[in-house]
């Protein structure tokens, strides 16, 4: 378990380093908007480059309750998001889902080919000013019991 924590930590650290360096170079931390689309609702929050999508939900106290139940420790899939094609393609190239993430995504409802866990996706400098992601939600036929 400790090893796993270390792994998660080191993974974050490795991913973080270039971001920090770039931020220093810009000498200003960029802020971007993330739009979470769930059913017919939109939840909008702001985050800095380097923040994960989970950070954005938590820091902006968005009405996506239960999102990130395990607090980003790769132990659940409550922060499941579906990225747009371009976004997914970039992440899949630079920060592909590892086995652990894929194992968890296998349990996620409405999983798609562009599914990721929000705790593993960071806001990047080359992201558009408004990042759009989809959050699956329960849409049950009200008549069925």
């Amino acid at each position: 378990m400790l090893a796993r924590r270390l792994l998660i930590f080191s993974r974050q650290f490795v991913n973080f380093t270039p971001v920090i360096r770039r931020q220093f170079a810009d000498s200003a931390s960029q802020t971007k908007t993330v739009k979470f689309i769930s059913g017919n609702k939109e939840f909008i929050g702001k985050g800095k480059v380097g923040d994960t999508l989970l950070d954005v939900v938590v820091n902006n106290d968005l009405d996506l309750d239960g999102f990130g139940a395990c607090e980003g420790t790769l132990a659940c899939c409550t922060c499941h998001v579906i990225l747009n094609e371009k976004h997914f393609e970039r992440e899949d190239r630079t920060n592909p889902a590892g086995e652990e993430e894929l194992d968890l995504l296998d349990l996620a409802p409405e999983v798609s080919d562009r599914s990721r866990l929000g705790c593993q996706i960071k806001i990047m400098e080359d992201d558009p000013e408004v990042i759009e992601v989809r959050v699956p939600s329960v849409t049950k036929d009200q008549r069925s019991a």
Binding site: G66, C77, L107, V138
Partner: peptide
């Protein structure tokens, strides 16, 4: 049935 995510989604919807 299911793991915590299904329960969480159901609960958000029932609320």
């Amino acid at each position: 049935q299911g793991v915590i995510v299904q329960t969480q989604q159901q609960s958000a919807a029932v609320a």
